[in-house]
Amino acid sequence: MAKGKPGPPSSGDKIIQFIDTSKCIGCKACQVSCKQWHRQLTESTTFTGSYTNPPDVSGKTFTRIGFSEALVNGRFQFLMYKKQCLHCKTCKCASLCPDGVITTPEGFVLFTEACTPRNVTVKGKKTGNPIDLFIAACPYNIPRYDAESGRFVKCDFCYDRYETGVVNHTACAQTCPPVAIVTGPAAEITALAQARLAEVKGTYSNASLLGNGAVIYLLTEGSSSYIDMQTLDPVVLADDTVAA
């Protein structure tokens, strides 16, 4: 099997994604391909002094490349990373809208047509602003309310593409020129992430594997150096050890 190219999943496989920021070139091909696949319109934005554009995920942007500015070994660098839903193992959003949030056997967390403000409750009771409550429940600030459809939306892990049996199925992974994004069976992708971490440690001494649920990030610097990555958790392996 070619390095970085996962094999086809089999029935019952947990599917995860590896995002290697040491390879990311900030081209935003993943951002564009996600919009194209989901038939999302472009957004009008204003330059704010950063290459991060649009400034955040939204009802029309499910994944977004961020640029953090950092001093690394005395030199100014851009740290580039992909912001998207992590498809958490324990979804706080699901506790607020159990009728509208489902987790598939593969581990994809999906928002259904019932994922609307009217179905948001706190311990079974309607209270406060449902839109604000639902978004604030996510530790990664991912869900967004789409006024046009009246629903909450986010990355759906290209579940419709997965069902067709496409290998490395997500639109972002299929499009990424430097193969910084790889999607496939959990055991295989975790092994790929561990091998890549060992490979880059000589160049990036602060590199680590962080994430949650169905997404593993390889960050070249500490998570505090990335604007949206501070709340990521260390990756725990199958033997309950922390990847390092």
Rank of each mutant, 00 (worst) to 15 (best):
residue 1 M to D: 04
residue 3 K to S: 03
residue 3 K to E: 02
residue 4 G to I: 01
residue 7 G to R: 14
residue 7 G to N: 13
residue 10 S to Q: 13
residue 12 G to K: 00
residue 13 D to E: 07
residue 15 I to A: 08
residue 21 T to L: 08
residue 21 T to K: 08
residue 22 S to P: 14
residue 22 S to I: 10
residue 23 K to Y: 10
residue 25 I to Q: 13
residue 29 A to Y: 03
residue 29 A to W: 03
residue 32 V to K: 13
residue 34 C to M: 09
residue 34 C to G: 13
residue 35 K to R: 10
residue 36 Q to V: 15
residue 36 Q to H: 11
residue 38 H to T: 00
residue 40 Q to W: 04
residue 40 Q to P: 00
residue 40 Q to N: 12
residue 42 T to N: 12
residue 43 E to F: 10
residue 44 S to E: 11
residue 44 S to Q: 12
residue 46 T to K: 13
residue 48 T to P: 00
residue 50 S to M: 06
residue 51 Y to I: 03
residue 52 T to N: 05
residue 52 T to C: 07
residue 53 N to P: 02
residue 55 P to K: 08
residue 58 S to Y: 12
residue 59 G to S: 06
residue 59 G to N: 05
residue 65 I to S: 08
residue 68 S to R: 01
residue 70 A to Q: 14
residue 72 V to K: 10
residue 73 N to C: 05
residue 73 N to Q: 15
residue 73 N to P: 09
residue 74 G to S: 11
residue 75 R to K: 14
residue 76 F to Q: 02
residue 76 F to V: 07
residue 77 Q to G: 02
residue 81 Y to P: 08
residue 84 Q to L: 15
residue 85 C to Q: 09
residue 87 H to W: 15
residue 88 C to G: 03
residue 89 K to T: 11
residue 91 C to V: 09
residue 92 K to I: 02
residue 93 C to L: 11
residue 93 C to F: 05
residue 98 P to E: 01
residue 101 V to L: 07
residue 102 I to L: 12
residue 102 I to W: 11
residue 103 T to F: 00
residue 105 P to W: 12
residue 109 V to N: 08
residue 113 E to I: 06
residue 115 C to F: 02
residue 116 T to A: 04
residue 116 T to G: 02
residue 119 N to T: 01
residue 123 K to F: 13
residue 124 G to N: 05
residue 124 G to K: 05
residue 125 K to A: 10
residue 125 K to R: 14
residue 127 T to V: 14
residue 127 T to E: 14
residue 128 G to I: 02
residue 129 N to K: 03
residue 130 P to W: 10
residue 133 L to T: 08
residue 133 L to A: 10
residue 134 F to I: 05
residue 136 A to Q: 15
residue 138 C to H: 13
residue 143 P to A: 07
residue 146 D to Y: 04
residue 146 D to I: 04
residue 149 S to R: 12
residue 150 G to V: 01
residue 151 R to G: 04
residue 155 C to Y: 03
residue 156 D to T: 12
residue 158 C to L: 00
residue 161 R to Q: 07
residue 166 V to T: 14
residue 167 V to C: 09
residue 170 T to P: 03
residue 170 T to D: 03
residue 171 A to T: 11
residue 172 C to H: 09
residue 173 A to P: 09
residue 173 A to R: 06
residue 174 Q to N: 07
residue 176 C to G: 00
residue 178 P to W: 11
residue 179 V to S: 12
residue 192 L to N: 00
residue 195 A to E: 15
residue 197 L to Q: 03
residue 199 E to T: 08
residue 200 V to H: 06
residue 203 T to W: 06
residue 204 Y to V: 00
residue 204 Y to G: 03
residue 210 L to C: 00
residue 211 G to R: 10
residue 216 I to R: 12
residue 217 Y to T: 02
residue 223 S to N: 10
residue 225 S to V: 02
residue 226 Y to L: 01
residue 227 I to P: 07
residue 230 Q to I: 06
residue 232 L to Q: 11
residue 232 L to S: 06
residue 233 D to P: 01
residue 234 P to M: 01
residue 238 A to V: 09
residue 241 T to W: 11
residue 242 V to P: 14
residue 243 A to G: 06
residue 244 A to L: 09
